[in-house]
Design a protein around this nucleic acid. Structure first.
Length: 489
RNA sequence: GGUCGGUUAACCGAGUGGCUAGGUAGCGGUCUGCAAAACCGUUUACGGCGGUUCGAAUCCGCCACCGACCUCCA
């Protein structure tokens, strides 16, 4: 198996040629959502980014195991005001239901939204609460090797000890000494030897609803631990790619590296990939900031920030039009531009079926195809890929226009090009499927167009315009061509 | 304050030491009874100031502005 794929590795801060550990197998782990409310636009970014990676690797012939977790232990939320409360539990209290009901509800909507965005299901979607045993075992290993210690029923990871042998902070470019010197004193952390130590097991307070028995206390696992435990379980001690949002780099992924490395005695992840954030008015879109737009709202238009509804494929196209490591700023203008561009692409692909091949060709599709692969190989450069595909759109339209020609094999190559890159790899799909009885609609439209043509032949513009206007009112667009009219819904 | 990243035309967004993506919008043209679509052409660019270079928006330095992250609590 061969590939020219380069990926930007956050660890080295460079693009590196992707070499899988055990070809043809590839293991990917991506941090999924914490399910305590509806998925928003920000959640679509990593889902689509890593869906693209998943699809492309499969296209290259790899057997990919794509693991994306669901965090269903809520983890504390405290900010400044007093006692922290688990986010899922907080929601459960507000809605007077079991924490697991909260989880179920939002897992369901997350899955539905991800389906709408046409992302493929991960190979495995493990949940933190389903892997308490694995996490406890991992904690035992850490304690045994001296990298974690118990304190008052909780267990903490010993950063200082780890830093003696390994380098804490290498992913996010942080230096432990500097971190410590910057630390403010926070109350209630006397259980820890060092302020940067993080919990791998936390003793539950009496009112805490989500709790499991362990050798140390009735409690719950620390947030960072689940990803280490589950990636080891499903992908092995060493695996190829770990992905997630840039906001998770520190401390989450840094802690994950520390835990896994301490427990295994070696680096677990070969390539770290981080997608950038979606911003709104220049600021990160996040649940905690309250400036988010949920995917359901985007699809329905039901949010004051939205001029109109945007289809799932418009959102997907919008996200793919930017490189995954750049921020994308949300705006109605940008979404509407994406919508039009996407429709233009779909229309061109649709009209491929109308092309009649000539005996010779004036266009070179193989070169275009090569460029498309180059774009993807360059750290999944989907915006450049799209620009090449729009060159393909221009070619298609020019052929229909008569200014370019293609032979039968060129036409086949064009069809294959769009099929491969637009549908298979970018994961876009045509949403404008005709509703109802397709064949009947086809025939009815033919009758209407014939009638209108008869009126036009009589220069009865009043009738022909009326037909066109009335059709337009019910969403059918007529387009007059040299050789008769075309229509679309 | 620390670390990292960004600043590209009306908007969104690529990219490279010289050959100046792409989408959307605008303008002009072709086509057309008109319209729409499509095609062709086209207008505002690379935050500021210096430096390196035959040549920089692309490399270096300084400045300005913006953003992300800065512990158990995404």
């Amino acid at each position: 198996m061969q590939n020219n794929l380069s990926l930007f590795n956050t660890l080295s801060k460079k693009k590196e040629l992707f070499k899988p550990l055990n070809p043809p197998f590839v293991g990917i782990y991506v941090c999924g959502p914490t399910v305590y409310s509806h998925a928003h636009l920000g959640h679509a970014r990593p889902a689509i980014t890593f869906d693209l990676l998943f699809r492309y690797l499969m296209h290259l012939g790899y057997k990919v195991r794509y693991v994306r977790n669901i965090t269903d232990v809520g983890h504390l939320e405290n900010e400044t005001l007093g006692e922290g409360e688990d986010r899922i539990e907080k929601k459960a209290r507000q809605e007077q239901i079991e924490p697991m009901e909260v989880v179920q509800k939002y897992v369901n909507t997350y899955h539905r939204n991800m389906d709408q965005l046409n992302t493929l299901s991960p190979s495995i979607e493990p949940r933190a609460t389903g892997h308490i045993i694995e996490q406890i075992e991992l904690i035992k290993t850490l304690i045994k090797s001296g990298y974690a210690y118990e304190s008052n029923g909780s267990v903490y990871f010993d950063i200082m000890k780890y830093n003696q042998k390994y380098q804490y902070g290498k992913l996010s470019g942080r230096v432990l000494e500097e971190l410590i010197s910057n630390t403010r004193d926070i109350e209630g952390q006397d259980e820890k030897r060092n302020s940067y130590d993080f919990a791998v097991w936390k003793k539950a307070s009496p009112e805490h609803l989500m709790r499991w028995p362990s050798p140390w206390s009735i409690g719950f696992p620390g947030w960072h631990l689940e990803c280490s435990a589950m990636s080891i379980k499903y992908l092995g001690e060493e695996f190829d790619i770990h992905g997630g949002g840039m906001d998770l780099m520190f401390p989450h992924h840094e802690c994950e590296i520390a835990q896994s490395t301490a427990a295994l005695g070696k680096e677990s992840v070969h390539y770290w990939m981080h997608n950038n954030m979606i911003t709104i008015n220049g600021q990160k879109m996040a649940r905690s900031l309250g400036n988010f737009i949920t995917l359901d709202q985007l699809f329905s238009g039901d949010n004051p920030a939205l001029d109109k509804a945007y289809s799932p494929m418009t959102i997907r196209f919008f996200i793919l039009q930017a490189h995954y490591r750049s921020t994308i700023d949300f705006s109605n203008e940008a979404l509407q531009a994406a919508e039009k561009g996407f429709q233009k692409l779909m229309k061109a692909i649709d009209s491929l079926s109308k092309i009649k091949p000539s005996d010779h060709s004036t266009v070179d599709i193989s070169k275009l195809k090569e460029k498309c692969y180059e774009a993807l190989d360059d750290d999944l450069n989907s915006p450049v890929l799209l620009s090449h595909l729009f060159e393909g759109v221009r070619i298609v339209n020019s052929i229909i226009d008569g200014s370019e020609k293609t032979d039968a094999s060129g036409l086949e190559s064009l069809k294959e090009l769009f099929n491969t890159f637009v549908f298979e790899i970018l994961g876009l799909k045509d949403e404008s499927a005709i509703k109802g009885d397709e064949k009947l609609t086809e025939e009815l439209m033919k009758i209407i167009i014939d009638l209108r043509q008869a009126a036009k032949n009589n220069k009865d513009w009043h009738t022909s315009d009326k037909i066109r206007n009335e059709l337009n009112k019910i969403g059918v667009k007529l387009k007059d061509k040299k050789d008769g009219a075309d229509w679309e819904i």
